[in-house]
Design a protein around this nucleic acid. Structure first.
Lengths: 283, 283
DNA sequence: CGTTACTTTGAATATAGTCAAGCAGTGTGG
DNA sequence: CCACACTGCTTGACTATATTCAAAGTAACG
């Protein structure tokens, strides 16, 4: 079985001959990474999954590649995107540790997107055939895979809600909060982090113009709710950003709290809210 | 097993005592509806799935209901929606025949959305436990379920692309085309159909204001590319609508064909394109 | 027939996009 | 080491698009 896997990986993978302490992971380790409990009903644990190293800027898989492997991020930062009718890139997600890449490809047996590395990465190859086999052996594992797919649906749906009902500044605010939370899950600070992606990629991901992202970040900085220095972000007032999630919606903010309504246009429209909430000390 | 299913269904279901020719469906029939091939590796076909009838305006499941059944639409039209932070409804989809409802609930074992009927409906209950069992018995069936989940992800992703990169009129145009295609798949005309949902629901689904939907439909009508009479739509020029998909994107139309750019504002901005494409005869 | 819900239309406004210019880091080669 | 170009980012001015508010029209319903 192992030789079989080795043969199915794309040639590019074989160029990565970096020495690594753990080139193969067990089912246990994969389950831990995926945040699913290890199936109790799976006795034989002789299955191993290969790790592959990527340098920043490399391609993990391209659109329309045949489905052979799913990819589980062990460490590093990536960008998944698709191409629309006009060959314009649409950024779909920024996978990081613990994220499973490629579940969209099961439908047509070909990848419906492409994924690039934004930093050096360590990726675990999960051959789809092996996953199917595990699903067959273990009902619990099968259920866990369905859960992961379901979670992906819920996540995308959440983004859909963001796209539809939030203003540009709320999108950016929510994006920053989300990134903070994700870093926190990885054990980093949720308040101070480096964005791994360009303004262009953020703008694309959020569905707004790059200038808008830039303007809003500057505005947040001016208001003292964040600090921006290149790609280094410090979130000073997360409450402000999370309130934006709720009340900056273009459509429904009339009727909710009388802030941000009828503020003089000569000053920032955020001032009203900013003054209501004490600026929190930087951790 | 059958009594078990009968006991797990919600009380509301039992009120529907309409007499029906086929109250139970086989695995075969379910697979046909889902457009997946019947698993060859499943010999015993003694499993039956209960049908439930709903009148228009009834609730199939509510947000946060525990996951007991998935729902497969046998006939009728529905609306799935979720509730955002502000208790505002967000329409997610308009399920119809062959659509599987509830795959989002597997993740947390509770439904993450609610579904209402827009017309009288016949729904097949698929107990999640039975599905798991079938997945276990048949590798092919398991794969098919993964495919359906994957397809759902791809669909939601498509909507995400629509939300991000299309103008309001392109969204409406695409919506009409999409509805036409879906009716066509059910064997109805793709050119002439009744919308089952209100303008409000369309607007919500597309993430635009209701007035915008109304205006754009009127505009399309004025241009002769569609006919609107209440909720009855006749698509006269699908090419026009599908071109909108490509070239009405707010962001990328500069540089593509010099239509719709620099048109006098006194007349419709669609006129330029409309004149380039012959109006097709009404089928 | 009046009430209600849904839809259409117009006018004013707000939001975000486009265009254009300039700035700031980065890297290259002289 | 500095000039140079290059890329990514920021900012301002203007414009387009879509929303909000307001009002009136239309169909459905008891």
């Amino acid at each position: 079985m192992l030789p079989a896997i080795a043969q199915t990986i794309r040639p590019a993978f074989r160029h990565n001959d970096h020495r690594s302490k753990e080139l193969w992971s067990s089912v246990q380790e994969v389950c831990d990474l995926l945040h699913i409990s290890r199936p109790q009903d799976l006795d034989e644990d002789n299955c191993r999954f290969q790790h592959v190293r990527f340098k920043a800027g490399q391609t993990v898989h391209l659109n329309n590649d045949p489905l052979e492997n799913l990819f589980l991020v062990n460490c590093g930062f990536l960008k998944s995107s698709m191409t629309d009718d006009l060959d314009k890139e649409l950024v779909l997600s920024f996978p990081m540790k613990g994220d499973l890449i490629g579940v969209d490809s099961i439908h047509r047996q070909h990848h419906q997107s492409q994924t690039m590395t934004l930093s050096d990465c360590d990726i675990i190859l999960l051959p789809y055939s092996s996953l199917q086999e595990l699903c067959q052996k273990s009902e619990q594992f099968g259920h866990a895979i369905l859960q992961i797919m379901s979670r992906e649906i819920v996540r995308e749906r959440y983004m859909l809600g963001v796209q539809r009902s939030l203003s540009a500044e709320a999108k950016v605010g929510r994006f920053l909060c989300m990134m903070g939370e994700r870093y926190a899950q990885l054990g980093y600070s949720s308040r101070r982090f480096n964005l791994r992606m360009s303004r262009n990629e953020i703008a694309n991901y959020l569905g707004v113009a790059i200038e808008t992202v830039s303007r809003i970040l500057s505005e947040f900085h001016r208001l003292g709710v964040i600090t921006v220095n290149q790609r280094e972000i410090v979130i000073i007032d997360p409450v402000f950003l999370s309130d934006l999630l709720k009340f900056s919606s273009t459509k429904e903010r009339a009727g909710d709290k009388n802030v941000q309504k009828g503020q003089p246009r000569t000053t920032s429209k955020f001032v009203g809210t900013a003054h209501q909430q004490p600026v929190m000390a930087l951790a």
